[in-house]
């Protein structure tokens, strides 16, 4: 964190994209998330940091209702996307997930061709009318994911045959292809080597132009490198949330300070 000039980093956007109020998550009888209030800004990278099991991934999965697939999981409180409650009974999670894309910890391309991986989302959502449009969407998604130049000659090759970093960028391209408004990333670099990590981090910074990005990470350096705002979770509580520079240089809560200096976690 020596050369990052964290304090100079500014947040230009001020539109609130997602606003969470008093969010509680229960797994059966376990109270996993307690009273979390977070405002996620548009066109900003927000990082969730914290020790293992602190609930940061759980909270991330609440934002596109991926927790719905877990039977015993129960979510209370309000999460608003552009002012609309995503846990409202009228909301179909499938529609929500088209607007809030997700990239997972382990690269998980479909066992299909690179092209089909990216084309799948636009196809099922009916975003394109014909093959030519689909080709265009696939190309632009792969370009946004900085993968186009590496794969343009072998779009028919299986996505699972790419290297780990390429696979993760393919997953990002797949998520971007449905033109979501928010991109959730659950430790996207934890299975990657340092070079691939650097590529993905660079990419995340570029994605900020178009999307609101939320990234969960174990690496504080990564949070410091890529994010504008950082939230520190501990034992299911949101301990501190603010501009990344402030969190890393001048934390207000002693627990945050302990964590970023390596005393807990």
């Amino acid at each position: 964190m020596n050369d990052m000039r964290l304090t100079e980093r500014t947040v230009d956007a001020t539109d609130i994209k997602i606003s969470a109020r008093k969010v509680q998550v229960f797994y059966g009888t376990t109270h996993a998330i307690k009273d979390v209030d977070v405002d996620i800004l548009d066109k900003t990278v927000t990082a969730f940091i914290g020790p293992s099991g602190c609930g940061k991934s759980t909270f991330l999965r609440c934002i596109n209702r991926m927790n719905d697939t877990i039977d015993i999981c129960r979510v209370e409180g309000d999460i608003l996307l552009d002012g609309e409650d995503i846990y409202n009974k009228k909301v179909d999670p499938v529609q929500l997930r088209a607007r809030v894309g997700m990239v997972f910890q382990k690269p998980n391309p479909f066992p299909k061709s690179i092209y089909d991986n990216v084309a799948y989302g636009p196809k099922i959502h009916g975003l394109v009318k014909n093959k030519a449009e689909l080709d265009e969407v696939v190309e632009s998604a792969l370009r946004k994911a900085a993968l186009w130049n590496e794969v343009k000659d072998r779009l028919d090759a299986p996505g699972t045959g790419l290297s780990g970093g390429q696979q993760q960028r393919l997953c990002i391209a797949r998520a971007v292809a449905t033109s979501p408004e928010v991109l959730l990333m659950d430790e996207p670099c934890s299975a990657l080597d340092p070079i691939a990590t650097a590529q993905v981090e660079e990419l995340i910074d570029e994605l900020r132009e178009n999307f609101s990005v939320v990234i969960v990470t174990h690496s504080m350096q990564q949070a410091a490198r890529v994010s504008q705002r950082t939230a520190f979770f501990h034992l299911g509580n949101l301990v501190e949330f603010g501009e990344t520079g402030q969190i890393f240089t001048n934390p207000r809560d002693p627990r945050t300070e302990s964590y970023i200096t390596g005393r807990i976690g």
Binding site: G101, P109, F110, I124, R174
Partner: peptide, 21 residues
């Protein structure tokens, strides 16, 4: 692998689409 299901659900496939595709 559940990761494949997650991937499909993550791009907004319905449960039925996830299973059949």
């Amino acid at each position: 692998p559940p990761s494949i299901k997650d991937a499909a659900l993550g791009v907004g496939a319905s449960k039925m689409q996830t299973i059949f595709h």
